[in-house]
Amino acid sequence: MTTPLHPSPSPALPGAGRAAHARQRTLTAALLVVPFVALYALFLLYPTLRVLQLSFTDADLTGTGNWVGTRNYARLLAEPTFWTALGNTLLFIVLTAVPNTLIGLGLAMLVLRLRRLKNVILAAFFLPFVLPVSVVTNMWNWVLDSNFGLFNFVTGSTVTWFQDPVWALPAVAFVTIWWTVGFNILLFIAGLSNISPEIYEAAALDGAAGWRLFWSITWPNLWPVTSLILLLQLIAQFKIFDQIYLLTQGGPFDKTLVLLLYAYREGFQQQHGGYASALGVVLMLAIGVVSAGQLLLSRRERA
């Protein structure tokens, strides 16, 4: 019996090689993830935990203070201004989140139907989205100015839009929709483009048309995109600050005071850092509850 010139390797060697390769891949993946984890912990996780800790103190703007337990939260629940800010925030969400979503859907369907004017419509509604908030608010301050504004000049109205207790919040909501609806249009166009034309053709052969096609085909297939847009809108409008601050500063008579602006006043103007931190925690919890509810509803719809 002849001895092979190249004896086969020991059965243990391939296993050891695979283990070493797996360890190397794990180490490489960890090294790639470490920068993100470090930045996430430094700029998101640590500030979140720090705000949570400050909410139980009487800290000032510098972040130093004594432990007071839940006193800030007790004050928050007993403070009428907090409930005013919360009510205004919820009203602003009602005025913007659902209308912004429906307008975005309608315009997206219009864009796909009017193919020759597609680029014109997209440009008209998406260009405002890339403008900074300072430009948007300055422009609408001029357009809706009670004395020299273009809108009042054309319509003959005498309403002081951003100073009127009734119209101030709806006016800011209108500006917000005009500014942000272009992003929703793009998302809806992407969702509508993913629906196979063959489904519509098969439904048309069965006699379906018009609203029947929309409710039976378009809406069910578009619900994941719609759910995502609603979630993004709810989160964004809960955190509304820039437009309110630049257009009304919470007035008149706190009719446009929202949670984030209230926290800004308490933290940076009154130097009640602990109380402002408690407001931030409440806002974070509210956004978390809304997001969880929206995701749960989306999963149930898919099931």
Rank of each mutant, 00 (worst) to 15 (best):
Gly149Thr: 13
Gly149Glu: 10
Gly149Ala: 08
Gly149Phe: 03
Leu150Pro: 13
Phe151Val: 15
Phe151Pro: 05
Asn152Pro: 00
Asn152Thr: 04
Phe153Asp: 15
Phe153Leu: 11
Val154Tyr: 14
Val154Cys: 10
Val154Trp: 14
Thr155Trp: 05
Thr155Arg: 07
Gly156Thr: 15
Gly156Asp: 15
Gly156Pro: 14
Gly156Phe: 13
Ser157Tyr: 13
Ser157Trp: 13
Val159Phe: 00
Val159Thr: 14
Val159Asp: 03
Thr160Glu: 12
Trp161Asn: 01
Trp161Leu: 02
Trp161Thr: 02
Trp161Tyr: 00
Trp161Val: 00
Phe162Gly: 03
Gln163Thr: 14
Asp164Phe: 10
Asp164His: 13
Pro165Arg: 00
Val166Glu: 14
Trp167Lys: 05
Trp167Phe: 08
Ala168Leu: 06
Ala168Lys: 06
Ala168Gln: 00
Ala168Val: 08
Leu169Met: 13
Leu169Glu: 04
Pro170Arg: 10
Pro170Tyr: 11
Ala171Tyr: 00
Ala171Asn: 02
Val172Asp: 10
Ala173Glu: 07
Ala173Asn: 10
Phe174His: 11
Phe174Gly: 13
Val175Lys: 07
Val175Trp: 04
Thr176Val: 02
Thr176Gln: 08
Ile177Phe: 06
Trp178Lys: 03
Trp178Ser: 04
Trp179Leu: 06
Trp179Lys: 14
Trp179Val: 05
Thr180Trp: 10
Val181Asp: 01
Val181Gly: 01
Gly182Ile: 02
Gly182Asn: 00
Phe183Pro: 05
Phe183Met: 11
Asn184Met: 09
Asn184Tyr: 09
Asn184Pro: 06
Ile185Arg: 00
Leu186Cys: 03
Leu186Thr: 12
Leu186Trp: 01
Leu187Phe: 08
Leu187His: 07
Leu187Met: 12
Phe188Gly: 00
Phe188Ile: 04
Phe188Val: 02
Phe188Tyr: 13
Ile189Cys: 04
Ile189Leu: 11
Ile189Asp: 09
Ala190Thr: 15
Leu192Asp: 10
Leu192Tyr: 12
Ser193Phe: 00
Ser193Gln: 13
Ser193Tyr: 03
Asn194Ala: 11
Ile195Val: 13
Ile195Lys: 11
Ser196Thr: 09
Ser196Arg: 09
Glu198Asn: 05
Glu198Val: 12
Glu198Lys: 09
Glu198Thr: 11
Glu198Tyr: 06
Glu198Gln: 08
Ile199Lys: 09
Ile199Ser: 04
Tyr200Ala: 09
